[in-house]
Amino acid sequence: MLASVDPPEVQLAFDRTWHVPYRWVSDPDGSRLAKPLGAWDSDASIFRPVVLAVAPDGSEAFRELSRDFTDRPDDEPVLAAVEALELPALAEPAAWAPEGIEPRPSKRAFTPASFIPYFRAIKFNTMALAERMRDEGDRHEVRTENAMASSFLDAFDGWRAEHPPEQQ
């Protein structure tokens, strides 16, 4: 499941653009999920990214709460935690089509065309910034951000192979 502050119309437009195999929850004020999960950024009135994997017994199998909107977990720890549950594979869900909702893209929506330049800029800016950092802790933070951008670019290559331009 994915959740955001966006209304269902915007979520549906995102879903149709990116072909994500998840369902969405609209949580405009953070009261349904973000605040109970400790993932609400009060200053920006948005979710901080959080990945939560729940075991069949309701316990948390994995949880990573990002520090800010740019911070994302690496896939490997998430996948390892889910695989450790040894659950049977699920069929890919049918396309999400909430009744009475028409897609309405947000003006600030992240499109496939903007993905590569955005993450390339992060990747190369963080490479340069890492060289300027004098404090090893700061250098580590910048390098972590660089690795996240590189990982996103690599994953996007796979996504593009599965979703030719006419589907984007």
Rank of each mutant, 00 (worst) to 15 (best):
E131F: 03
V10H: 05
R67A: 14
D29C: 08
V142Q: 05
E64T: 02
A13W: 08
T111G: 06
L2P: 01
Q168D: 05
R67D: 04
P21Q: 08
R16V: 13
D135P: 04
G158H: 12
Y22T: 15
F14M: 09
W18K: 11
D74I: 01
P28N: 11
T17I: 13
D135H: 13
F110H: 15
P88W: 10
R104M: 15
A55R: 14
S45C: 10
A91E: 13
E145D: 07
D157T: 08
G58E: 08
A94M: 07
S4Q: 07
P77V: 04
Q11F: 02
R23G: 03
S150F: 09
R132H: 10
T17N: 04
A94K: 12
T70W: 15
S114V: 14
H163K: 03
S150V: 12
F115K: 02
V50N: 04
A13T: 10
P28G: 11
P103N: 05
I46E: 12
R63Y: 09
A91P: 05
L52D: 02
T17D: 14
E83R: 15
T111M: 01
D71S: 14
A61V: 07
A55Y: 11
D135W: 12
P8Q: 07
A84P: 07
L33C: 02
A109P: 01
P28W: 03
V82A: 11
D135T: 09
W24L: 04
L65D: 02
I101L: 09
R72C: 10
A130D: 13
S150C: 08
W24G: 00
P49Q: 01
A3N: 00
G58I: 04
E86M: 12
R16I: 09
I46N: 08
R139F: 07
R139L: 03
R134Q: 15
S114F: 00
A94W: 08
L129H: 10
L87G: 09
H163M: 04
R16N: 12
A95Y: 01
I101M: 09
V5G: 09
M1G: 11
S31D: 09
I116D: 14
Y118D: 08
Q168H: 04
A121Q: 10
W40D: 03
A55K: 13
M1R: 04
E131I: 01
P88H: 06
S26P: 00
R16H: 14
D74W: 10
P165D: 06
A3M: 01
D71P: 13
N146K: 12
E76M: 07
R23M: 00
S66E: 03
A130Y: 05
A13H: 02
S26M: 02
R63V: 00
E131T: 00
P73D: 05
H163Y: 15
P77R: 06
Q11I: 01
L33E: 01
A53V: 12
L12W: 01
G38H: 04
